[in-house]
């Protein structure tokens, strides 16, 4: 073997390469660990449901029928129906419909929402969300919770957010 002197340059390059590889491995390992926290398969219930016939809903009333099972209020106005998400936009508690005061009131930090879902008191930063609502082939209302409409983004004008009758 030759007894060539390793130049400073070569030495530094090897050190550099070594550290780079080491850190890259660490990074890879870290990513793997982090990725392990995000499961691929979720066992979560179906996100759409049938909500009966439009005639079942009285004008000017908030229906509590689907609240406990699906977390949705169906509200009937003179023009039609919309599906409000029963999840407070503050931190996710379930507000209560106070029919006397005509408002949704959240018990956790006191946010209040009007009939329309617009927030007006307490800490909630934005209105309740609405879900996609349509009439199925069998004449029943279909609520699809995977598609939501946010008022502050102007999405309540989207025809899918409202079932005109």
């Amino acid at each position: 073997m030759s007894k060539e002197k390793v130049t400073r340059r070569v030495f530094v390059s090897w050190i550099f390469l070594g550290w780079t590889l080491f850190l890259a491995c660490l990074g890879g390992l870290g990513t793997m660990l982090l990725r392990y926290l995000f499961p691929n398969v979720l066992f979560e219930p179906s996100q759409s449901f049938k909500a009966g016939y439009p005639e079942n809903y009285a004008v000017g009333e908030v229906s509590l029928l689907w609240k406990s099972k699906h977390g949705v209020w169906i509200v009937r106005t003179a023009e039609g129906l919309y599906a409000l998400s029963a999840v407070c936009t503050h931190l996710g508690c379930t507000p209560n419909w106070l029919s006397g005061e005509k408002k949704f009131k959240c018990p956790c930090h006191g946010s209040g929402f009007r009939f329309s879902g617009i927030n007006f008191e307490g800490p909630a930063p934005r209105p309740l969300e609405r879900f996609k609502i349509l009439l199925g082939d069998d004449g029943q209302i279909l609520v699809d919770k995977t598609k939501k409409f946010q008022q502050e983004k102007g999405e309540w004008n989207d025809p899918a957010s409202f079932l005109a009758i």
């Binding site: 406990s68 099972k69 977390g71 379930t94 507000p95 959240c106 018990p107 956790c108 930090h109 800490p123």
Partner: peptide, 22 residues
């Protein structure tokens, strides 16, 4: 998950934070 208790309180040692949330 359908009914939040009213009032829905965290344990006492987190209530200063919950008060801040208001």
């Amino acid at each position: 998950l359908a009914t939040s208790p009213n009032p829905a309180k965290a344990p006492w040692y987190f209530l200063a934070l919950q008060e801040m949330l208001v």
